[in-house]
Simulated scan of single mutants.
Amino acid sequence: MFKERGIEIKSREQILSMRAAGLVVGRTLELLRAEVRPGITTGELDAIAEDHIRSSGATPSFKGYHGFTGSICASVNEEIVHGIPGDRVLAEGDLISIDCGAIVDGWHGDAAITVPVGEVAPELLELAKVCEESMWHGFAAARLGGRLTDISAAVERHVRANSSYGIVEDFVGHGIGSAMHQPPNVPNYGKAGKGPKLIEGLALAVEPMLTLGEQNNHTLEDDWTVVTDDGTAAAHTEHTFTLTPQGPWVLTALDGGEARLKELGVTFGPLAD
């Protein structure tokens, strides 16, 4: 590991450790996706997540982070991000975003999914769909030797081409590695060709957050939960990825991102798997 202008650049072995953490995160989120249903509480989902992370030989990234009490963030409907899991009962028609992180041998993985609770309004399903698609378009735009905002521009371009959704600007993606949040920030909007160069060993968490209405938001009195000002629903999707000479490798996707990248005509670039 070394620093390139303050940005952590990982060795191949360190990236492989991040893949191990990423697989724990990916499997935890798929377990939670299957558990989401009307009547379950966000606290119950959190307990399932913590048990799975620890039984996998990993440590939850979120628990205790600046005092955060959960192993996941559970953000429902108008909650954009950082929802604290607790006694809230999920109801038919809700939309929940679940953010999860895990540490293996000191290296982090971080990802998020948005999941419908039972039968959900079509406009909410479309919001979640465009949010996830925009993230994958961001990965598809990443090339060694390119610039960080190539990702940002691709995320925004897909959102703007398919919707009038708000793109949350106050919360962005980030570098990740020996800490969960590191430089550089990865905005979900902007012009291509700017920012740090994309090089081998750089790992980034790309995480678009979209709203049905305006992107303006505020934090509740719990000092964590971020909600839309206009009360409209939000979606949040995230994966951790890196670039190899062959192409992107999505460290928190169970298949490394192979299927979705191939759909977009992008060569899949795993170091393992």
Rank of each mutant, 00 (worst) to 15 (best):
F2S: 13
K3T: 14
R5C: 13
G6I: 08
I7Q: 06
I7L: 11
E8I: 07
S11R: 13
E13W: 09
L16S: 12
S17G: 07
M18F: 11
R19C: 12
G22N: 05
G26C: 10
G26M: 08
R27T: 11
T28E: 01
L32T: 02
L32G: 01
R33P: 07
V36D: 00
V36S: 00
T41C: 03
T42K: 01
T42G: 06
L45T: 01
L45C: 08
L45K: 02
D46E: 07
A49V: 02
S56P: 06
A58Y: 00
T59I: 15
T59Q: 13
P60V: 06
P60F: 04
H66K: 14
I72V: 15
I72Y: 01
C73N: 10
V76W: 00
N77A: 09
G83W: 02
G86A: 09
L95R: 04
I96Q: 00
G101F: 08
G101Q: 09
G101P: 05
G109C: 03
D110F: 15
D110Y: 13
I113S: 01
T114C: 07
G118D: 06
E126M: 03
E126V: 00
L127W: 00
A128R: 01
K129Y: 11
V130E: 01
E133R: 12
E133M: 11
S134T: 11
H137E: 15
A140D: 03
A140M: 05
A141P: 03
A142N: 06
R143A: 08
G146T: 06
G146I: 04
L148Y: 02
L148N: 01
I151S: 01
H158V: 06
A161K: 14
S163F: 05
S163L: 10
V168E: 08
E169Y: 09
F171D: 10
V172F: 08
G173Q: 07
H174M: 11
G177N: 03
A179Y: 13
A179N: 14
P183S: 13
V186R: 07
P187I: 04
K191Y: 11
K194Q: 15
K194D: 08
I199G: 06
G201W: 11
L202Q: 12
A203W: 05
L204Y: 00
A205N: 12
A205I: 06
E207K: 12
T211V: 09
T211K: 03
Q215P: 14
T219W: 02
W224I: 04
T225D: 05
T225P: 03
V226E: 09
V226R: 15
V227K: 04
D230K: 10
G231I: 10
T232G: 05
T232W: 04
H236Y: 13
H236C: 09
T237C: 14
E238H: 14
H239N: 15
H239V: 04
Q246D: 14
Q246I: 06
Q246A: 15
G247T: 10
G247L: 08
P248V: 08
L254W: 05
E258T: 01
A259R: 13
L261T: 05
E263S: 14
L264D: 04
T267H: 11
G269L: 09
G269N: 08
D273W: 13
